[in-house]
Design a protein around this nucleic acid. Structure first.
Length: 909
DNA sequence: TTATTGCATGGCT
DNA sequence: AAGCCATGCAATA
């Protein structure tokens, strides 16, 4: 429906009072005929037609009769029937096709019935029959005298923009009818309206309309919903009650909320932005309007919670969540919000059943990946505590120092706020009731500040809640919505991934931004070999984890699914209380995760580097996908953090893999292709049954091993590091260190990068630090996130060197490295130490990264392999070359080149 | 003086 | 390059 030139009738409304027939093209209205109500006008009134015009309208031939010369005629793609697409009257007579063109409503319905999952980009509510069009949403237009004049004012403006009107209305109608596809449609809608958005900058102006409710009701009444009986809707309707709350405990105002809920629905998170033209804010990625709005500007907050059970008693599975969708800015925000949670969509259901994220892909795509909710269905179920509740994860946010600070203001991502929170037109915003995971209700002030022609949304008064959850910067809060109540639920996830109290139900893990069921609880994640790796994810790593496009997902799925992402809060805590602005911000991006302190950089890890630590899951059966010419192996299961091993050729030139038992620290020789879990022990030595027990002696003496295993080289350029390294138990290589750090599922390294690393006491008898008290098995106490023990510090250092090494490696050609290595091997023996140093610098500027002491187990107890300050590997020359006492430890170039390459080859890419 | 509020700044995406 | 958003900070209580 448009008010374009093709719809003269619509624009002639003002004159209707003086005319017998509303239709200006009616040249011969019967003066004695009774006025009949035709289509609904935007004003909320109806076009009053003379008998003849009404008849043509009723028969669906109005356009043919009066608009035959108007623009907008097209042919149905299916039946070639001529269809008018250019006026308010014909608005419901056709459906826009994805591929372009239109289908007449009849053909569209046929298609729809045959392929219910098909996405309709059309404007018209499929279910809506032409015969019922007089009851279309057009009816729902509120008159200027409606309860929400402010909205109307905006609406009028909006709809006078003819170009927008048609599109919006059509889409609105569409969404109502196709809740399952509503979101998809809305995407289209959004884009199409985006340009219009700017035209209506005054957020305070909104459109109000009852149309949604009516439309929905009508649609249901029409029974057209039956086209897709699996639709699930929940209609929340708070009408005329600015402070209405669906929650019986609502703080303010009453609500006439009637949650219509028939049957249990699994909300696929498909929040539909229905009501597009009327109510939706174009930016609302997913219209879920919390019904927990306590109070909106009284003029604007219209919560709707109307049950339609009576309307479609036979369609138990149908429900519509209608709430207010907010949108500041452009589109008129309407007084009603509609959430369409369609569980009917088989695809979505499949997702749910698979434990996939409940967030609609397109909706989610509207948000930055960092805000994608990562919560499992199971967890959601726990949150709801009621199997009949529909939990819709909305978004999550890692708490910044500011968020977690005493100021009590939680900055909300703009898009999230606009998509999921109620519309607020005034900076003061409105109280928002949020329930935490424990069921406790909190009331925050949801408001915004004007900011650079935009808005900055915040939740004020979150301090008590944050404190009650014991959250800190770096932890993540998640926002979900429970339907049909429409309540907002705020969960949280500690940065460590370890839950405390209710966090057990909040402990999350995600994959590709999708919600995945945890393969194990946090304990498992901690004590099992599930790696949760990435310590301080870089931008690349994060993007890999939260790919915005499917192609990217493939490359990272193997990682994501492993749930190693648990550590999303790494380094965050150090931000707490950060007084420095630059570089202290928290976020999911590497830069935002970075710590001010140089030391904080040590944990920075690139995605590629992280991969070097990964091993295919034990039962890996990768599927290969090719993306942009690159082949990727995709694993269903999470990768594991493999044990650090060393590939060392024997005298015959055969390469063997050497690994150290986690329990006894004995070194075992393994096949080159052996893939070891990070907590590998002698008992796992299936390749050498004679040495499959810790009681078995080592194949080689410590001295021999010392020559083979490049456990460490030089000292640290920083005395403290050096000293610490001397006392660190488990510093036998990156993997071991990383494993140690990850023992506590992140707690070890933690998201915390202490501003200083000098406070932790050195290990000594009686030391109760995590390193000292943790048994070799790795069980028992875990590193705290704030742990500044040697192990954790060492891990950080190692990660830093990893990063540096990575950069260097990228710039070095493998061939050249090999050549140099050969040359060096030939010459090194005769080189003086100084020359070695020079060569080393040239060949590999990265410093040795191995701690002073090697061969220690995880608990820090010194073990087997004696300390070697310089040459400890078969690649003695190379190691010597890289030995730079004044720099941080770094594996020798050759070892690095070969070992890491092998690692790369042996590990999933 | 301290806490709160609201806006401005600027790093980062 | 625009917009987001973490944080600083002045104004105010």
């Amino acid at each position: 429906m448009t008010s374009s030139s093709a719809a003269p009738a619509a624009v002639a409304a003002p004159a209707r009072s003086s005319k017998i027939c509303f239709n200006p093209l009616c040249k011969d209205p019967k003066s004695d005929s009774a006025r009949r109500r035709g289509w609904r006008l935007r004003s909320g009134d109806y076009a009053e037609l003379c008998d003849r015009c009404y008849f043509t309208y009723e028969q669906g031939s109005f356009c043919e009769t009066f608009h035959s010369d108007a623009a907008g005629w097209r042919n149905c793609e299916a039946c070639a029937k001529r269809v008018h697409c250019g006026c308010i009257i014909s608005a419901h007579a056709y459906v826009l096709l994805d591929a372009g063109g239109v289908d007449c409503i009849a053909c569209a319905r046929k298609s729809f019935a045959m392929a219910p999952s098909q996405m309709w980009s059309s404007s018209l509510p499929l279910p809506q029959q032409i015969s019922e069009r007089k009851d279309t949403h057009v009816k729902n237009w509120k008159s200027p005298t409606a309860p929400f004049p402010g909205y109307w004012r905006q609406a009028a403006n909006l709809w006078n923009a003819s170009s927008v009107q048609s599109d919006l209305q059509q889409r609105l109608a569409y969404e109502f009818d196709r809740p399952n596809n509503g979101e998809k449609l809305f995407q289209v809608y959004r884009s199409s309206v985006a340009a219009q958005e700017k035209k209506y900058e005054d957020p305070s102006e909104r459109i109000t309309s009852n149309s949604l409710k009516q439309i929905v009701r009508e649609r249901f009444v029409n029974g057209n919903i039956s086209l897709d009986p699996s639709f699930s809707y929940t209609i929340s309707h708070r009408e005329g009650n600015p402070k209405g709350l669906q929650d019986p405990n609502n703080l303010a105002g009453e609500t006439d909320t009637m949650s219509l809920r028939k049957g249990v629905i699994v909300d696929p998170c498909l929040t539909t932005s229905s009501g597009a033209n009327l109510d939706r804010h174009p930016n609302s990625a997913a219209s879920s309007l919390p019904s927990s709005i306590l109070d909106e500007d009284s003029s604007s907050s219209i919560g709707l919670a109307t049950a339609f059970s009576s309307l479609d008693g036979a369609k138990d599975s149908i429900r519509i969540a209608s709430t207010q969708m907010q949108r500041q800015g452009a589109l008129p925000s309407i007084s009603k919000q509609i959430y369409s949670h369609n569980a009917a969509d088989s695809e979505m259901q499949a997702q749910v059943s698979n434990g996939r994220p409940r967030l609609d892909a397109q909706t989610r795509a509207q948000l930055l990946p960092r805000y994608w909710p990562r919560i499992t269905n199971q967890e959601l179920q726990q949150i709801s505590g009621d199997s009949k509740s529909i939990i819709t994860p909305l978004f999550e946010k890692m708490l910044s120092a500011s968020d977690a600070g005493k100021i009590g203001r939680l900055v909300l991502p703009k898009k999230c706020a606009e998509a999921y929170f109620p519309i607020i037109s005034q900076p003061e915003g409105l109280p928002l009731k949020v329930q935490d995971a424990s069921g406790k209700d909190w009331v925050f002030q949801f408001r915004f500040w004007p900011n650079n022609n935009s808005r900055m949304y915040v939740l004020e008064g979150v301090t008590p809640c944050i404190q009650s959850m014991q959250l800190q910067a770096g932890d993540t809060v998640t926002f979900s919505r429970i339907d049909p109540e429409g309540k907002l639920v705020m969960g949280f996830r500690k940065a460590s991934g370890i839950s405390s109290g209710e966090q057990d139900t909040q402990n999350l893990k995600f994959s590709n931004g999708l919600l995945m069921p945890l393969e194990g609880n946090s304990r498992n994640l901690t004590e099992d070999s599930n790696p949760n790796i990435p310590l301080c994810p870089t931008k690349e790593s994060i993007e890999s984890r939260y790919p915005a496009n499917p192609a990217e997902k493939a490359t990272s799925s193997k990682f994501d699914k492993g749930g190693f992402i648990q550590k999303d809060g790494l380094a965050a805590r150090s931000l707490q209380g950060s007084s420095k602005r630059k570089g202290s911000s928290l976020g999911t991006s590497s830069k935002r995760l970075r710590i001010e302190n140089k030391d904080s950089m040590e944990l920075k890890l690139t995605w590629e580097e992280a991969q070097q630590l990964l091993r295919p899951p034990p039962s890996h059966v990768p599927s290969t996908v090719i993306i942009e010419g690159h082949e990727f192996e995709e694993y269903e299961e999470a990768p594991v953090l493999g044990k650090r091993t060393y590939f060392i050729p024997d005298k015959a030139g055969d390469i063997h893999q050497w690994a150290q038992c986690e329990d006894c620290s004995k070194w075992r020789k393994l096949p080159e292709d052996a893939l070891l879990p990070y907590r590998w022990t002698c008992s796992d030595n299936t390749w050498d049954t004679e040495r499959s027990s810790c009681s078995a002696s080592q194949e080689l003496s410590l001295e021999q091993l010392a020559e083979l295993i490049p456990t460490k080289t030089g000292g640290s350029k920083r005395s403290k590091v050096k000293v610490e390294s001397q006392n660190v138990g488990a510093s036998n290589g990156l993997d071991t260190l990383a494993n140690l750090a990850i023992l506590g599922e992140g707690e070890a390294l933690a998201t915390t990068f202490p501003q200083t690393t000098t406070k932790h006491p050195r290990h000594r008898p009686g030391c109760s630090c995590i390193v000292c008290i943790q048994p070799p098995s790795g069980k028992g106490p875990k590193h705290k996130q704030t742990c500044t023990c040697n192990v954790c510090l060492t891990v950080k250092r190692r990660f830093k060197t990893l990063m540096l090494r990575r950069e260097k490696r990228q710039s070095e050609k493998e061939a050249e490295v090999a050549r140099k290595q050969q040359e060096q091997q030939q010459k090194i023996i005769n080189l003086l130490p100084e020359e070695v140093g020079k060569r080393s610098s040239l060949a590999n500027s990265s410093s040795s990264n191995f701690p002073e002491k090697t061969s220690t187990n995880n608990n820090g107890a010194p073990h087997g392999v004696p300390e070697h300050r310089k040459t400890t590997s078969p690649f003695k020359a190379e190691i010597d070359l890289n030995f730079q006492p004044e720099q941080e430890e770094e594996p020798s170039p050759k070892l690095d080149a070969r070992g890491m390459m092998r690692l790369l080859r042996d590990t999933p890419t």
